[in-house]
Amino acid sequence: MSEHRHRTRLLPLTAAMLMLGVIGRAILALPTTGDGLAVPMRAGAEASGIPNVITAVLLDFRGYDTLLEIAVLMLATVAVLSLREDPAALSRRIAGGAGPVLGTLTRALAPIMLLVAGHLVLVGSSGPGGAFQGGAVLGAAGILLMLSGYARPAWASRRAVRWVLAVGLIVFIGVALYPLLSGGTLLQYPPENRKDLILLVEALLTLSIGASLVSLFLASASSTEGGGRR
């Protein structure tokens, strides 16, 4: 039997159905309204003067989650890098290269994407946007460049790439610890330079996230020579 044809298996199916039943029963037992923490969160956001309540939750109230989340992302990058087979994966050229159309298009698009990424970071504090969105656009630009045959620029040594990947997290930790000097707690930004600090962190995070996404792509892409081994 081909391994692509799948035969339904009864026991796992039963388990999944039972799970569905468990979830269903739990959900149907809920009252139709439930505020959770919505009310105090909104009040808190208003008090601290952040217009977007979700941003307030992400960056302020539960900023610790976000710090660890950045750690998760960098960890995943490190993990994938540790699993790469080609030590030079980060500096290689992707097989094939680009035709004239893709090449020209990429060259035209890349600066615009850079601009969009920057914009997303800037609006992040008040509307939808932020480091993840910006980083995603930045990463996409990078991957596009790689796909069209560009390699890592010559000036970027291995050490420099590592710095770019880590700088977001390092600066984030630094900024998180900074309030400790003035008697605050971790991540308790002083109100006077709160905005600047967040912007600094977001900007560098965007850079690191973008670099992470490109690294993830490069580390797992097949090498130029001879494709993947069997």
Partner: peptide
């Protein structure tokens, strides 16, 4: 895998 993970899901159901 399939046996083990199925047992685990069933265990979750039993615990619930």
């Amino acid at each position: 895998w399939t046996t083990a993970s199925t047992i685990l899901v069933l265990l979750a159901v039993v615990l619930v």
